[in-house]
Computed example of a mutant assay.
Amino acid sequence: MKLHLTREEFLALWRTHRGYTPSVCGDACVQRSDGMDLDSILMAEMEEWYRKLLLEADESLLAPEDIAADTAMPAPSGGSVTIHLPPGV
């Protein structure tokens, strides 16, 4: 099963899997006093997991999309090219 989640939906799911949702914790309260935001820590974990998935997962586990029709490659300028990707990429 392949899920298509927004960043907020993914964070909510990640919180649940880590045990940081009210329904999992009951009346527990999670607080940090070192200036770090718990969501920032969870987002870093998510991004690392996703980066590893993209690098190491079997292709059948990914959901590639052909974006060639939505992009254009301009002529090189100064030996480099900037390609503008469509929204959502």
Rank of each mutant, 00 (worst) to 15 (best):
M1E: 13
M1W: 07
K2P: 10
H4D: 10
H4R: 13
R7K: 13
E8Y: 02
E8T: 07
E8L: 01
L11Q: 00
L11S: 02
A12I: 10
A12G: 06
W14A: 13
W14P: 07
W14T: 15
R15P: 04
T16L: 15
H17T: 12
H17C: 14
R18E: 09
R18Q: 09
Y20H: 08
Y20I: 11
S23G: 11
V24D: 08
C25Q: 15
G26L: 03
G26V: 07
D27R: 13
V30H: 10
Q31Y: 14
Q31W: 13
Q31N: 12
R32Q: 14
R32H: 15
S33M: 14
M36F: 15
D37V: 15
L38V: 13
S40P: 04
I41Q: 07
A44I: 08
E45H: 03
M46G: 12
E47Q: 08
E47C: 04
E47M: 03
W49E: 10
W49L: 11
Y50F: 14
Y50A: 15
R51K: 09
R51L: 08
K52L: 15
K52E: 11
K52M: 14
L53K: 11
L54T: 08
L55S: 09
L55M: 11
L55Y: 05
E56C: 08
E56Y: 07
E56P: 02
A57I: 01
A57M: 01
A57S: 06
A57Y: 01
E59P: 02
S60K: 08
S60A: 06
S60M: 02
L61G: 03
L61V: 07
L62G: 00
A63F: 06
A63W: 05
P64N: 02
P64I: 03
P64S: 01
E65L: 15
E65N: 06
D66Y: 00
I67A: 04
A68W: 07
D70W: 05
D70E: 15
D70Y: 05
M73F: 08
M73H: 01
M73Q: 09
M73G: 03
A75L: 12
A75S: 09
S77P: 01
G78T: 03
G78M: 01
G78K: 00
S80Q: 11
S80H: 06
S80G: 03
H84M: 11
L85Q: 00
L85W: 02
P87G: 07
P87Y: 04
P87I: 05
G88Q: 00
V89H: 11
V89S: 11
